[in-house]
Design a protein around this nucleic acid. Sequence first.
DNA 1: TGTGTATTGGAAACCGGTGTCAGTGACAAG
DNA 2: CTTGTCACTGACACCGGTTTCCAATACACA
Lengths: 364, 364
Amino acid sequence: MTSIPLRLARTVTSDYAGAMEKTGQPTINDVARVAGVSKKTVSRVINRSPLLNEDTRRRVEEVIGDLGYIPNPQARALALGRNFLIGLVHDNPNAQTVMNVQQGMLEALYDTEFEMIVRPLNRGSPTMLEDLRHFLERQRLFGVLLMPPISENDAIAELCVEIGCRYVRMGSTELDTDEHMVASNDREAVRDATRYLIELGHRRIGLVSGPHGFRSARERRLGFEDALRDAGIALPRSMIADGDYRFESGLVAADRLLDLVPRPTAIFSCNDEMAAGVIHAACQRGLTVPRDLSVIGFDDTPIAAHMWPPLTTVRWPIATMARSAALKLIAGVSSQETEAAVAEPSLFRSTLIRRASVSAPAAE
Amino acid sequence: MTSIPLRLARTVTSDYAGAMEKTGQPTINDVARVAGVSKKTVSRVINRSPLLNEDTRRRVEEVIGDLGYIPNPQARALALGRNFLIGLVHDNPNAQTVMNVQQGMLEALYDTEFEMIVRPLNRGSPTMLEDLRHFLERQRLFGVLLMPPISENDAIAELCVEIGCRYVRMGSTELDTDEHMVASNDREAVRDATRYLIELGHRRIGLVSGPHGFRSARERRLGFEDALRDAGIALPRSMIADGDYRFESGLVAADRLLDLVPRPTAIFSCNDEMAAGVIHAACQRGLTVPRDLSVIGFDDTPIAAHMWPPLTTVRWPIATMARSAALKLIAGVSSQETEAAVAEPSLFRSTLIRRASVSAPAAE
DNA sequence: TGTGTATTGGAAACCGGTGTCAGTGACAAG
DNA sequence: CTTGTCACTGACACCGGTTTCCAATACACA
């Protein structure tokens, strides 16, 4: 019995082929005609309406598959008043980090009706907030994922609320309600990393900090201070050198720290790129890492494993966090996704990855 | 005289404010009503129609500014049958490269009505072509930028033509007509880089190749062979080690090359990531770069400048190429952009960046 | 037979723009 | 004074879906 309507449908398909060839793509009307239902019913199938006979649904889905029908996202967007685009808004200077986030997002969006649209923002530009407002209002995005450090800006979250755009903020600490954030535990992770140095016997440990105004930089610095305080080690201001998360600043900061007498035996750098700068500076002076200087970074970017010596660093599950954030964003669109989101955690643990850039300090 | 209609317009604006508050955003109808014209005329203003009275245009623009009207891209997309999204399609494993392309694209798209939508493709997946077709048909993109190595696939270009989606291919050699490609001169650039090694006195030069099937890998290898042939240096098969553009393959390849007796005094690696692997392997054996081994990479990713020693490499103007490609894509949309595109070149020169990873070979 | 419930259809309006084509007024030519 | 041309503008259908409202059908149950 089931095969007859099926074949009928196929036959009718070819009868109506002419109607489709105008645009080359079948419309909802074609599907309705072929399936012998109203377009309203097809719409119900597409939108997974619950009050729909199971047989009808199957039949319509069959036709949709046969015709290769794809609902026009533009038309849906217009009718529904929102589109199916998820924005990634960032002003992060680290390419690898951004790519990891993109990868995580796309993983979550894969096989959904959503697509990712990327919007870098120029931090420091006075019109940044207006630019973003313009972008959000114009595109009427379904939701946005806010990457650090821009995610730390509360004004942006308020803007999203005002405009009625869903948002999730990624951060190094709890920035918002569970629904609106995913966070890692930078402070604890850095504390543990610093403790590791202390346990190895290091006492003179330098810090290359991140830029002022970055929440992550603050958290990481606090974690560093926590560990020293817990161990009863004094932290003179001279042992802290300011960085801005970029390689060059790591170079400069390390030069300053390595000029100290006595020299630090270890340096914690608030990210890998600056840690590369630290190692670079050490090599330039003829120091050997880790014999003369132990170095720890943060992020576990590919460069960390690929440099020589391989860098001990803190791994931040960034792609996983981004994936989770994206799932939160699209939660509730279909029952499946809702269930997935219910299980989505908001807090993620960073862990220390031990490589060759750290050893016990040389005996003095 | 001019100030009167202006004030009138403003007054009317507030009269009609109520009509707008339904959605929070003014529509074309609001603008038309306030300006006292038809919505069609407003549409003409938006689309810069030439047959339009200058006074009318100014008046409508005034109202648009006053109301803060933003045309709904979804509605335009539906009416026009195409949207204002430019896709970036890639299957490139190198994060930095992808980010550079994104940056270049976004630069070109900045202040236009276009947005960037990113679509990674899974190379090797048998459904790749179908996935892409589905994506393009569904989203009705204005155009796509194809990154290498996927850009080398002619079937994809044909698919774009079939679907009626504009495309531009980025490549390491001329892949298509000027309108549809931007290319760099990898072969020449590698030839020059290899010559540089030869001029310094190197005679035993190893090659870490790129993956089979990549056009860029082939071009780079050819450039390498050109230089040796020109110099009358024999190239035994053992001096070529296969890589796949990833760090680990560079490590393995270098291990093989460094086992040779006599050892090569220099290695050209077809990208920076593998070059990092080469240096890594050399360091592991206690060799010093460049004293015991000179290394040259390709790409000039940030890692190149940041590693120790800083890597001599070939810089490929990737962001510039991507920018140019994006401008080609949106050429003809408005007169400005057309003019810009006319000047867009299709061929770009890669250049050798000399850093510390190369020196003359040690006297034997 | 009547009533309630679940499922589907039909018609029309709507989302916010764009294309077509006919209409308007001004002005020059006949 | 008419006619034709030109520059400009508006009415209306249309893009491909969704929604609303209501009616219709089928079926189960009392």
